[in-house]
């Protein structure tokens, strides 16, 4: 464990120094994500000019939800996105070889090698927006509820990573430019909308087969409605199942990997 932490420290150091070599890109990306936050906030602000509730939530609650979406996205972008973006390239060019011969888990190496320093700045911005949304919320929100929320959001980030990997790993068999990740990006739109607007079988799918509502939306509801053991067990159980499924598909993928001839 200590060895992995130390290794991750090196990843961060190298990634930050590499990011500083491409200054334009560094600042452009921060600007882009800042616009993405503004775009979300404007979207909800305009909708709430015409309705007082959306999916059972007020504008103040929706801003907290949006803050959670930004935090989850910031974490995902900082820790995993660049790595998952490059993974299909490595598989198709046979570059996974370099990671298989190292005395470290290839899944750890390929998932966390590149730390996105620019997205870390965005993560700080997201934290600021989340704090702003909490501060303007008129009701009481205890420190305990916020701590539970943050913990569930971290679990949601693991779920997000596992789901994205499940859609990316098929590149071992498909040899396309991105596996099925474009499909995941399309489906990921559901993550950015509150679960309260979905009904019927779509909502059931969003908490089971494709549990995108468990990433941010359900953890946010804990802030307003409190946590039940059933919900806690469901979120943790589904995340564990998704992670195990991802690890299993990954091991099958490595078995199917045909090195540089892929």
């Amino acid at each position: 464990m200590i060895r992995y932490l130390r290794l991750y420290g090196y990843f961060v150091r190298f990634s930050v120094s590499r990011a500083m070599e491409f200054r334009f890109d560094f600042f452009f990306r921060i600007f882009m994500d800042g616009l993405w936050y503004a775009h979300h906030l404007v979207f909800f602000w305009v909708i709430y000019r015409h309705t007082s509730l959306l999916g059972g939530w007020t504008l103040d609650q929706m801003f907290i939800f949006a803050g959670g979406v930004f935090l989850a996205d910031g974490l995902q972008m900082t820790l995993f996105s660049n790595n998952l973006w490059m993974l299909p390239n490595y598989v198709n060019k046979g570059d996974v070889d370099y990671y298989l011969v190292r005395p470290v888990s290839p899944l750890f190496f390929l998932s966390l090698r590149d730390f996105a320093a620019n997205s870390f700045i965005n993560l700080l911005m997201a934290a600021g927006l989340f704090a702003w949304a909490l501060a303007r919320y008129p009701g009481p929100l205890g420190a305990g509820a916020i701590a539970v929320y943050v913990a569930l959001l971290l679990v949601g980030c693991v779920l997000h990573y596992a789901l994205q990997m499940i859609f990316t790993i098929p590149v071992f068999w498909l040899h396309t430019s991105g596996g099925l990740r474009e499909i995941y990006w399309s489906l990921d739109r559901y993550t950015g909308r509150p679960h309260g607007i979905f009904t019927g079988w779509v909502r059931r799918v969003l908490v089971s087969a494709l549990p995108l509502a468990l990433i941010v939306s359900y953890p946010t509801s804990v802030l307003f409605d409190g946590l039940t053991w059933k919900l806690f067990a469901h979120i943790v159980g589904v995340t564990a199942a998704a992670f195990l499924l991802m690890a299993w598909i990954w091991s099958r993928g490595l078995r199917a990997y045909a090195s540089a001839s892929s």
Binding site: I47, S52, L174, E182, S186, R189, Y190, I197, T199, V202
Partner: peptide, 27 residues
């Protein structure tokens, strides 16, 4: 996969829009 991605993209985009509109018009 180009056609599959296009179809999934369209259905998802429309699905999210559908539920959003239904929620907006609930009152």
């Amino acid at each position: 996969d180009f056609w599959l991605n296009s179809l999934v993209g369209f259905v998802t985009e429309l699905g999210v829009a559908y539920f959003l509109v239904v929620a907006m018009f609930s009152g």
